[in-house]
Structure formats: structure tokens, C-alpha cells
């Protein structure tokens, strides 16, 4: 299997990428890790006339924290997320999710930005970014704009990113002390996308939940923010009854496709179960015990 013909561009700077995107727009695809795009090109589901390889732009890689915000370059690989001491200490949800994506070789190439910007509802990071209230930095010929991960996903492969814009950075407010996080993913085997998965972020004020972030992977045409489930937990001391109510609210918004991973009913139930598990685990991690 070989992709169709295209003109290959390997710009050395973000400015050059923007110029190329401005020039070719819809005709161009951006090549990040390539582990979604190249398979699509081999199958001729994607046939860009211009391929813009952004692997040779060092400024797009790296993880740093300034003034309570974690900045992650869009081309930071899954392997780099897993190895990051900063993330493992301050936002372990991201490496936890990266560890259950694909396999070592794919994680060496696959990038956070590619996973976030692709718009495939089976990607894992979008739900994580929604639960963390991440901001996405887009740059294009008209300048730079910052959009919330919540609201970015509008449909399958349809996002707020315009064809001539590049996702350059992801910004995450550093979770305050007293935050518990968990990503629970059900998959059939290594390398599979989620049958269902849930990202949960709980900020506790003593024993009470001050703020909850709950988002779901691969159970609808887009990743889902489970606001009603969050409201069940917020302001309360979380117990098993509330966890059950939150899971019911999470299941209520699921609209999964039927595929080899299961029918809609099964995948909806699994989304509920992943929500229960992730809430329990996040709580256990922040309190050092089970609810």
C-alpha cells in the first residue's frame, strides 16, 4: 500500500508552515506523527496534493510550566509525555492516557497535537484536554487565537481549526493541590481504540468536591463533556450513590456507533462503568483511600 502522489514540503519554521497553509489551504495536509494520516493516505481516504511535514521544527516540541500554566508543544510525542517528570508530578492524567494509546513504536512518533487536532472521536487526548479545561493555540495567516478544548470538537473530523491554521501548543492550567485524576479505558487489545473511556478530574476542598471535570472518549461523533455528571458531584462529599448518579448522567449523553467493539447499548454501559471507575480512582488518588 502506497499513498497517492503529493508534493512534499519540510519547512524549518512555523512561519513557513503558515505561508504554505495560506498558499494551499484545503489542498494541504499537515504531517505530524503520521500514524493516522499515512494509513488514511495509503487507503486513499486522504489524497492531499501537498503534504506539510512539521517534524523538523524543534520549537513545536517540549513541555514547560510558567505561572501556573503547563505548555506542551503540539509535536511532543506520546513517549515524551510518558517520560515527562513535570507531567507525572503535576498532571499525571496526561501520561496515564498516553500509556494506553497504541504501542511503543507508534507512541515514539504519535504526537499530542496530532491526537488533539485530528478530530477523530476515538483519539484519547481530546477527552483528557476537555476534562482539564485545556486551551489550544492556533496560528494561521490571520494571526494567533486561543480556543478552549471544550467546544473545539464539532463533529467527526470537524473542529474549530480552519484549513489554514496550525495547532502549535496546548495549555493546561496546572491542577491545584487537592486534585485527583484518572483515565479509565476499556479496549480489546494493545493498539485498539477505546470501546469506551472516561477522563475524570476532581478538585477537592477538604472532603467536598469543589470542581469536577468529566469527559468521555469514543461514545459519540465527538468526545463528550459530561456536564450533568459533573454537577452531580460538585459541592458534595462524593459517595457510591453519587458516583452511580454521575454514571447514569454520563450514559445519558452517549450516542456510540455500533462496530466490532460492541453495539450501542454495550458501549454506553461501558462508558458508565469507565466513569464509575475513573471517579473512584481519582478520589482514591487524592484521598489516599477508596470512597
Amino acid at each position: 500500500m502506497i499513498p497517492g502522489h503529493f508534493a512534499y514540503h519540510a519547512p524549518a519554521s512555523v512561519e513557513e508552515v503558515i505561508t504554505l497553509l495560506g498558499q494551499y489551504g484545503d489542498e494541504a495536509s499537515v504531517l505530524a506523527g503520521g500514524h493516522s494520516l499515512l494509513p488514511m493516505m495509503k487507503l486513499r481516504f486522504a489524497e492531499p496534493a501537498h503534504l506539510i511535514d512539521i517534524n523538523r521544527i524543534p520549537v513545536l516540541r517540549g513541555i514547560r510550566e510558567t505561572q501556573g500554566v503547563i505548555h506542551i508543544g503540539a509535536m511532543t510525542t506520546e513517549s515524551e509525555l510518558i517520560a515527562s517528570a513535570l507531567l507525572n508530578e503535576k498532571c499525571p492524567l496526561i501520561p496515564e492516557a498516553a500509556r494506553v494509546i497504541a504501542d511503543p513504536q507508534v507512541r515514539n512518533r504519535g504526537t499530542l497535537g496530532g491526537d488533539v487536532a485530528n478530530g477523530d472521536p476515538s483519539n484519547d487526548h481530546p477527552a483528557v484536554m476537555m476534562a482539564l479545561d485545556a486551551l489550544l493555540v492556533l496560528r494561521g495567516p490571520r494571526g494567533e487565537r486561543v480556543v478552549s478544548a471544550n467546544g473545539f470538537y464539532q463533529g467527526t473530523y470537524l473542529t474549530q481549526r480552519e484549513a489554514d491554521e496550525l495547532l502549535i501548543e496546548i495549555r493546561i492550567p496546572t491542577p491545584p493541590p487537592g486534585t485527583g485524576q484518572a483515565y479509565c479505558k476499556l479496549k480489546r487489545k494493545t493498539g485498539d481504540y477505546a470501546t469506551a473511556a472516561a477522563a475524570v478530574v476532581l478538585q477537592l476542598d477538604g472532603t467536598r468536591c469543589r470542581k469536577a471535570g468529566i469527559a468521555l472518549t469514543n461514545v459519540a461523533p465527538t468526545p463528550l463533556r459530561a456536564d450533568a455528571a459533573e454537577r452531580v458531584l460538585e459541592g458534595k462529599v462524593i459517595d457510591e450513590d453519587l458516583i452511580e448518579q454521575a454514571a447514569v448522567q454520563a450514559m445519558a449523553i452517549c450516542d456510540p456507533a455500533e462496530d466490532l467493539r460492541g453495539d450501542a447499548e454495550y458501549r454506553t454501559h461501558m462508558a458508565g462503568e469507565m466513569t464509575r471507575r475513573a471517579i473512584r480512582l481519582a478520589l482514591q488518588r487524592v484521598q489516599g483511600k477508596s470512597p
Partner: peptide, 27 residues
Amino acid sequence: CETSHCGACTVDLDGISVKSCTILAVQ
């Protein structure tokens, strides 16, 4: 498999393991 699943095409590229069926030669 030519779909980046099986790993039979694994090579070392600049000190990391990659699947050479999912990388363009020009890269």
C-alpha cells in the same frame, strides 16, 4: 501488515524504535 499494527518492519531511527511502513522515506 503495512498498517502499523504488527511491528515486523520495526527499525531504529535516530535512536528510537519506529515502524518503517508508516514513515515516508524522505522523512
